[in-house]
């Protein structure tokens, strides 16, 4: 059983895992961080997106041992639990940017990644394209 050590939402965590353990399983089942959801489980929808070393990654398509040593941020780590929401969470809340809410954690992590990558180059057409295809944000 491979031993893994990660930093998740700023805290060091370790575990001995079956090699088949996906990052999303490790987060949900070992760490009980159930904010990250499994949607399609076929690497398409993006409900399971978390940040691995600052980049959006589908947690259902990475074995946890592949990213041993990485720094992970999940939806739980975006804002201080006792403080205000992260501005992206607040924007989704303000504009009712959700339907049933199941994929919202992945959408928010994807949107934060988009801002991180594009910064001030993030324009209305890019946002509009993403809004038209919410299941898979493509830009």
């Amino acid at each position: 059983m491979p031993a893994v050590a990660l930093t998740v939402n700023g805290k060091p965590v370790t575990g001995d895992v079956d090699p088949r353990t996906l990052l999303v399983q490790f987060l949900r089942e070992n760490l009980r961080l159930t904010g990250t959801h499994v949607g399609c489980d076929t690497s398409q929808c993006g409900a399971c997106v978390v940040h691995v070393d600052g980049k959006a990654v589908k947690a259902c398509t990475v074995f946890v041992w592949q990213i041993d040593g990485a720094n992970i941020t999940t939806i739980e780590g975006l804002a201080d639990p006792n403080g205000p929401l992260h501005p992206m969470q607040e924007a989704f809340r303000e504009h009712h940017g959700l339907q049933c809410g199941y994929c919202t954690p992945g959408m928010i992590m994807t949107a934060v990644d988009m801002v991180n990558r594009k910064g001030h180059d993030l324009d209305d057409p890019t946002i509009a394209i993403s809004a038209a295809a919410p299941a898979t944000i493509t830009s």
Partner: peptide, 8 residues
């Protein structure tokens, strides 16, 4: 794909 796919 999409950005998350392109990251891996």
């Amino acid at each position: 794909g999409d950005p998350a796919v392109r990251h891996r």
